[in-house]
Design a protein around this nucleic acid. Sequence first.
DNA 1: GCAGGTTGAGAACGATCGTTCTCGACCTGA
DNA 2: TCAGGTCGAGAACGATCGTTCTCAACCTGC
Lengths: 186, 186
Amino acid sequence: MSDRAADVEQALEAAERLFNARGVQSVGMDAIRDASGVPLKRLYREFPSKAELLHAVLDRRDTEVRSAVTGFVDSHAGSGSPRDRILAVFDYLAEWFAEPDFRGCMFLNTAGELGGTSETVLSVGRRHKLALRDYLAGLVAEAGLPEALADQLMVLANGAMATAALQGTPDAAVHARAAAAVLVAA
Amino acid sequence: MSDRAADVEQALEAAERLFNARGVQSVGMDAIRDASGVPLKRLYREFPSKAELLHAVLDRRDTEVRSAVTGFVDSHAGSGSPRDRILAVFDYLAEWFAEPDFRGCMFLNTAGELGGTSETVLSVGRRHKLALRDYLAGLVAEAGLPEALADQLMVLANGAMATAALQGTPDAAVHARAAAAVLVAA
DNA sequence: GCAGGTTGAGAACGATCGTTCTCGACCTGA
DNA sequence: TCAGGTCGAGAACGATCGTTCTCAACCTGC
């Protein structure tokens, strides 16, 4: 009854949740089967290996995160100045970090765990961060600020994610926002 | 002939190198024995488990990193203004990121890999980052700048480490330094 | 030289994991 | 009703890993 696309969706969602909570290597395919309800046979029909399942999870997460950021900025500062929209990105981070199961940026985490052994994981992460940097660069250009600011804001955003994940508090988003406010005003 | 302390040292050094290169879970105790020359029996006499070996590696790395930072700042900007010393921290990052086997901050990496399953790893990482923040807070106070700046600089530093590790280039240190220069001048 | 303890190399053990296979239940179409 | 195919649950397999054990070689003190 449940169709193939729904199985894929449930598998990806369960895998994302488990990878996020426990890391990639600590999560077995059995755990993904149990959490998603999708039997092993179907998992391996849709994703030929765990590595390809991880790749699919990261691809899905990439579009998820990017649309969440742009959606938040549009709805909270869509009518504000470009500078307001830049700062809204950090307000988004604050909301994200406060979610109860926040465990950091999946791309930074998987790069830390597997980056030494998987070039694929690194390159998916690089593409994701590059896309976010380009989004910030667009806002920076609209604000008439120098392009180099986009890289600085990206370092701030990544730093907020890494710091918040380690500390277990969303404070880093507030610090990053304050720093960003100084940078866009300079 | 080789004495117990030397074995411990070689084991810690080999484990640090391997954990850094491949992550913790991908490195077996056999690989640490082969790389260090310390037999398994001695490894287990000095470190009752792999988890305690990791803990010891992180403790060693904590003092290593902190003395490297303060040593660099003292020797490169010891006679400069407090603001120069703050910026020298980011010059240190640039040198570090350019090392050929740089693979990111071990505390951020292990937190990403094991933070979901090991509270110990998280708390060692938090202590390390807190110590660095306190060092920055000292420089900030000497410069007569508001204490909140220390947290912002810490986010910048963590962001530079995470970004450089993912990108494989030391550029992020330059971006972080430029942002820090604006913040300390504000 | 010799008993008694210590050591190292590697085998062994038990657990886990990614992946594949078995086999019985169930559906389908005539 | 029946043949043929599909599917799910779980067993099975081979590899890896953390940890412990075996056993022969080697010290040490006398």
